[in-house]
Nucleic acid binder design. Structure first.
Length: 154
DNA sequence: GCCAACGTTGGC
DNA sequence: GCCAACGTTGGC
């Protein structure tokens, strides 16, 4: 079992939106970065867990926990000219972009902000905290995962 | 294969 | 809204 962190802008798709979906499940579309795609395509497995991270907002940080319920498959929004994730170069016969399905597990008891994460020496190795990091999904080590859950309190 | 131009991400 | 960091594109 592996752990992940996945970013979304809450104005686009938030943890609340995921919770309110039918089956509390939704596909994680719109990833348009090869490294991030490769992880979804090759490495994310059913049963893996992921932090839901709100980016590009007032208080960026971890807001919830979710579970991967379907492994990588073609991101159909790339074929849809109406979608703002449309990519004219992605051919349905040879899809360029992949997505996984995720299911809502819970909100964290509070937002664990980026600022707070940065304060912990133990998390200094996190990819999220590396300078210039722009990956929209990334692995979290088991150690980091449980350390962060420990910060959450109750 | 190099690299300048450009677009995007995302914190602040 | 600004801008640093980074990825992609395309001319050469």
């Amino acid at each position: 079992m592996q752990y992940w962190l996945m970013k979304s802008e809450p104005g686009e798709f938030s943890i609340d939106t995921l919770r309110d979906m039918p089956n509390q499940t939704e596909h994680w579309d719109g990833v348009r970065n090869y490294q991030a795609r490769n992880m979804m395509r090759d490495e994310m497995k059913v049963g893996d867990q992921a932090f839901f991270y709100h980016s590009n907002c007032k208080v960026p940080g971890i807001v919830g926990v979710m579970e991967v319920v379907r492994t990588g498959y073609p991101d159909h929004t790339a074929f849809d000219p109406e979608s703002n994730h449309f990519d004219p170069k992605s051919d349905p016969d040879k899809p360029r972009w992949m997505m996984v399905d995720v299911k809502y597990l819970r909100h964290t008891h509070r937002v664990i902000s980026l600022t707070e994460l940065k304060e912990h020496e133990e998390l200094a190795g996190m990819q999220l905290l590396k300078k210039g990091n722009r990956l929209s999904d990334m692995p979290v080590t088991q150690q980091q995962w449980f350390y962060i859950l420990g910060l959450e309190g109750s």
